[in-house]
Simulated scan of single mutants.
Amino acid sequence: MADFISIRYVGERLMQCKDLPDALLLDVIQDAERYATLRDVHDGLADRIGPVPWNLVLAKLRGLIARGLVDGCACGCAGGFTVVAPDALVNAA
């Protein structure tokens, strides 16, 4: 389980959603067996790029849902995230 952090800096500024590549999140979600929970996504990102604040993960997932790349619930519950189309991984890169 990843450590809880509330902020993270990228260079001299606070980390923002744009610092989390779409393709990375889609890849983390795709790695889940049936669907990815919020914890799966958060911990998968932490394993690949280091600790990421929960609020950024939720905000990024909301954006991916709004753009139709991911299906699930980003209210803070378990989530149940799935990649809508397998070719979304290629198009998001």
Rank of each mutant, 00 (worst) to 15 (best):
I29C: 08
A2C: 10
C17E: 11
D19A: 10
L69Q: 14
V41F: 04
V52D: 01
G63I: 04
P51I: 01
A32F: 07
L25T: 06
I7D: 00
C75T: 06
V10F: 11
L89C: 09
K18L: 15
G79R: 02
I7S: 02
H42R: 15
A59L: 10
A93Y: 03
L56Y: 00
M1A: 15
C75I: 02
H42I: 05
C77F: 04
G68V: 08
A93M: 08
D87M: 10
L64V: 10
L38G: 08
I5H: 01
A59Q: 07
A32W: 02
L56R: 01
D47F: 05
A36C: 05
D71M: 09
D22G: 12
A93H: 06
F81T: 03
R13T: 00
Q16K: 15
P21A: 13
I29D: 06
F4N: 08
C73P: 00
P21N: 05
D43R: 10
G63L: 13
D47G: 08
D87R: 12
G11H: 03
D47C: 05
N55D: 06
A59H: 03
R13K: 13
C17L: 08
V83G: 09
G63P: 01
D43Q: 13
R39F: 12
L14W: 00
L56M: 05
T82S: 12
A23L: 07
Q30V: 06
K18S: 15
A32L: 08
A93F: 04
D19M: 10
V10S: 12
L24T: 07
R34C: 09
L69N: 05
G68E: 03
A92R: 10
A74D: 00
I5L: 07
H42L: 15
S6L: 09
D22K: 15
D31H: 11
Q16N: 11
Y9N: 02
Q16A: 15
V10W: 04
A32V: 04
P51C: 08
C77D: 04
I5V: 15
G50M: 14
G50H: 11
I29F: 07
V70P: 09
G76A: 06
A88H: 14
A23Q: 13
L26C: 13
Y35L: 12
M15R: 00
A93L: 10
G76N: 05
L89P: 03
D43I: 06
D31A: 15
A85W: 07
D22A: 15
A78K: 09
V70K: 07
L25V: 15
A66H: 04
L38Q: 08
V41A: 07
D47S: 09
R13V: 00
F4H: 11
